[in-house]
């Protein structure tokens, strides 16, 4: 049987302690141990981005990350994001611009979008397209997702300026 590891980390701003099998992925830990089901399984090998979370300020595929490796780190999931001002801006923009159809890829793309907004590497459409190249969406054809992130970029800019 697999060894377990006791880990401590900050999850959506809250100190969290959990004991996980050493081989467990962060995605499995979030969904099965911590009941945070907003982070989705859709491929389990880093090809689709549905499980995107933020770790120490950068986005990663949680399916590719050993849960044990969360020890001492700062995690943000979709549940934490939507409780923040930037999450609210994104959620409103995604809804208003029609970025959501079946919605299964949406939390992962929201997470990737917050990374774009945080790193602020430019809001040109081509940059945004590249920024979400690791997120697959089967419904929307991406157009309205890109619209949504572009609008959120502008909103975030305005709010920062104000």
């Amino acid at each position: 049987m697999s060894a377990t590891v006791d880990i401590r980390f900050r999850l959506n701003g809250v100190d969290t302690e959990v004991t996980v099998p050493a081989g467990m992925s962060t995605l499995e830990m979030l969904r099965e141990r911590l009941d945070l089901t907003g982070t989705k399984y859709a491929c389990g090998e880093g090809e689709c981005g549905a499980c995107t979370i933020s770790v120490d300020g950068v986005t990663v595929n949680s399916c590719l990350m050993f849960a044990a490796d969360c020890d001492g780190r700062e995690l943000l999931t979709i549940e934490g994001l939507v409780a923040s001002p930037v999450g609210e801006v994104l959620r409103a923009s995604f809804a208003r611009n029609g970025a959501v159809q079946c919605g299964f890829c949406t939390p992962g793309i929201m997470m990737q979008a917050q990374h774009v907004l945080r790193k602020h590497k430019g809001c040109e459409r081509a940059d945004l397209q590249r920024a979400i190249e690791g997120n697959l969406c089967r419904c929307t054809g991406y157009v309205k997702i890109i619209d949504s992130i572009a609008e959120a970029c502008v909103t975030a800019d305005t709010e920062q300026g104000a």
């Binding site: 389990g44 090998e45 595929n61 399916c63 590719l64 990350m65 050993f66 490796d69």
Partner: peptide, 28 residues
């Protein structure tokens, strides 16, 4: 040895890599 894990995780899941008894994260 575990660094980013992006290759190790899928390879250990699909059996291409057999994980040894000690998993060592070198991240720190």
């Amino acid at each position: 040895l575990l660094a980013g894990g992006t290759d190790l995780m899928p390879q250990s899941r699909n059996g291409r890599t057999q994980l040894r008894p000690t998993l060592m994260s070198i991240r720190r």
